[in-house]
Amino acid sequence: MNRGLPDLSVERSPLSLVEMIYSTPIREVMTGDPIAVRRSETMRAAQELMREKSISGLPVAEDGRLYGIVSIHDLILTIQSDQLDQPVERHMTDHVVTLEEAMPLSMAIAYFGKYPFGRFPVLDARQRLAGILTVRDINVTLIDRLMRDVTRYESMLESEPLPGLAFTRVFHARRHDFEQGGKASTALKRHLSDHRVRRELIKRVAIAAYELEMNQVVHSIGGTLSFDVSPERVGILAQDRGPGIADMDLAMTEGYTTADDWIKSLGFGAGLGLPNVKRVADEFYLHSELGIGTTVKAVIRLDTGKENGA
């Protein structure tokens, strides 16, 4: 049952995961209020209950005190020997390995590694049955907490404040990802606005960044967009992994496009992308190789650039 559980040793796991499994008590992970049978009930009754509730291990308990557990294995043996009408007491596993609810999750993970069981009954401080813990419970909890952590980290990345105008960041663009496309340019624009860069300059930067970003989304198989901002200039470097531009002169011709009708229906593919970038940029560099990819570099000077174009 424990096969496939990852190695959660301290040395190899990220800190937040280690912290999580050491600081979370089993109480918060287990399924509380477990279904149980009494010792005098028949194995047939136990079987019915397990089938009905889809459980593979049924605790035998009375008034909170745990006497044993009926596993699928116990059930099979009873069916084979045709003793389903005998009391649970005679067929249950009575040497039960248990966990305590105040123990950390790390202990439970160690138990699943050590014993061949798919579940452990969990006792409270007074040694009464408080819940059942399965590998599934652990997985669900860990995934849920990791999701929350990752979401938190991502939001920290997005809103990371920078003290000055200087700013470097790399964004990834994916083919036809119109949902994410544009986010990089929006982030760059926000940064410049936050640092009170003149609106005309921001607009030129925004045009260049957005056209290059959407070019990658529309035409490339994916790539990166790097921003490098200093008080003197904004550098935008767009590098994609292909397919490359077949005819550079045509690509720089206003109105020429290779976009299909779907792309056009989304408002792109007017054949103005690269010419627009060139028009607003103080420096413009384009290099492309078929099958290799395209690199575009655009620089907008914040000190002494051209003032027209936007």
Binding site: F178, G182, T186, K189, K203, F268
Partner: peptide, 13 residues
């Protein structure tokens, strides 16, 4: 009616 129209509007102020 696309998200990109909103982004574009934001970018041009």
């Amino acid at each position: 009616a696309s998200e990109q129209m909103i982004r574009t509007a934001d970018l041009v102020g």
